[in-house]
């Protein structure tokens, strides 16, 4: 029954409208190691035959990949906190940014911290700590990993409580 429904979904959604042309048939290469950008030896993908790409485009080099968005001239640095994150917490930062929920939680954190600074209500430190607590309450490890890395390497410039 389940296979039938899967087949019906695929046929109905793709075939009826577009006739199954390549414009709606995405392809992928072999599964790659997330830490290196290299093709995994255990990959079972049918699309073998060409090397995996690395960030630098030197296919087949398979050296550990540094996210190019962490480069100083990549356009993602607006202050000391960003520079410290790119230097010491690159993977944690962009792994968070690439996840919609973590990205939005990080934006909420920024807004919350700014509001805490602008507020005349009292204890700014307590308000900022509450902002970070909300951020790390996000289910999953992404927000916590970023917070832990910043606390270890960028505590002062990122004002981590």
């Amino acid at each position: 029954m389940s296979k039938f429904i899967h087949l019906a979904l695929a046929l109905a959604a793709a075939g009826i409208f577009f006739g199954g042309c390549s414009a709606i048939s995405p392809k992928v290469g072999p599964e790659q190691d997330a830490s290196t950008g290299c093709a995994s030896s255990s990959s079972s993908s049918p699309y073998g035959g060409y090397p995996s790409s690395t960030a630098a485009g030197d296919a087949g080099a398979c050296a550990p990949v540094q996210d190019p968005r962490c480069a100083a001239d990549a356009g993602y640095e607006e202050g000391d906190c960003d520079r410290c994150e790119d230097t010491s917490c690159c993977a944690q930062r962009f792994t968070c940014y690439d996840d919609p929920a973590c990205f939005n939680a990080d934006e909420d954190l920024d807004t919350c911290v700014e509001d805490a600074k602008a507020s005349d209500a009292g204890d700014e430190d307590a308000a900022r700590a509450a902002c970070w607590s909300t951020f790390t309450d996000l289910p999953g490890p992404l927000a916590k990993n970023l917070r832990d890395c910043e606390a270890q390497h960028c505590k002062d410039v990122c004002e981590v409580p």
């Binding site: 992928v28 093709a39 690395t54 960030a55």
Partner: peptide, 30 residues
């Protein structure tokens, strides 16, 4: 059926190597 293109400037963020052809989008059907 939704066809969505995605940014491929950093291939390292993907689970699979980018296919040279038809590798810059995904389909989400329901």
């Amino acid at each position: 059926a939704r066809r969505t293109q995605f940014d491929t400037s950093n291939p390292a963020i993907f689970k699979y190597a980018l296919s040279p052809a038809d590798g810059d989008f995904f389909m989400k059907d329901g």
